[in-house]
Simulated assay, not measured.
Amino acid sequence: MQTNLEGRKVLVTGGASGIGAATVRAMLTEGADVVAADHDAGLLDQLETETKDRPGTLRSVRADLSTLDGCESAVTGALDALGGLDILINNVGTGSVRTFEQLTDDEWLHTMNLNFMSYVRVSRTALPHLRASRNSPAIVNNASDLARQPETQPIDYAASKAAVLAVTKGLSRAEGPHIRVNAVAPGPIWTPFWTKPGGFADTLAELHGMEPMAAVEHEMKLRQLPLQRLGTPEEVANVMVFLASPLSAFVTGAVWGVDGGSIRALY
Rank of each mutant, 00 (worst) to 15 (best):
L11W: 01
V181Q: 06
E235G: 04
F200W: 11
V167D: 09
T252D: 08
M112T: 10
A81N: 11
V216C: 04
T13L: 02
K52N: 12
W190C: 04
G42R: 15
S262Y: 07
R180N: 09
G83W: 09
S118W: 07
L79N: 01
D40N: 15
G170R: 13
L114P: 02
H218P: 03
N182L: 05
L266S: 14
D40G: 06
F250K: 09
R264D: 14
R59Q: 15
G84W: 09
A78D: 03
K221H: 14
E217Y: 07
A163F: 07
S118L: 04
L230Q: 15
G253E: 13
N135Y: 01
N182Q: 08
L204Q: 07
L204M: 10
G231I: 05
L43F: 02
R121Q: 12
V12D: 06
S73N: 15
H39D: 11
S172D: 12
M1F: 04
L65C: 11
A36S: 03
K9Q: 12
E211A: 13
F100H: 14
Q46H: 10
I87N: 04
M1Q: 12
I89H: 12
M27K: 03
A254D: 15
F250V: 05
I19L: 12
K9R: 15
V164D: 09
R124N: 13
D69P: 01
L88K: 05
A26T: 00
V24G: 00
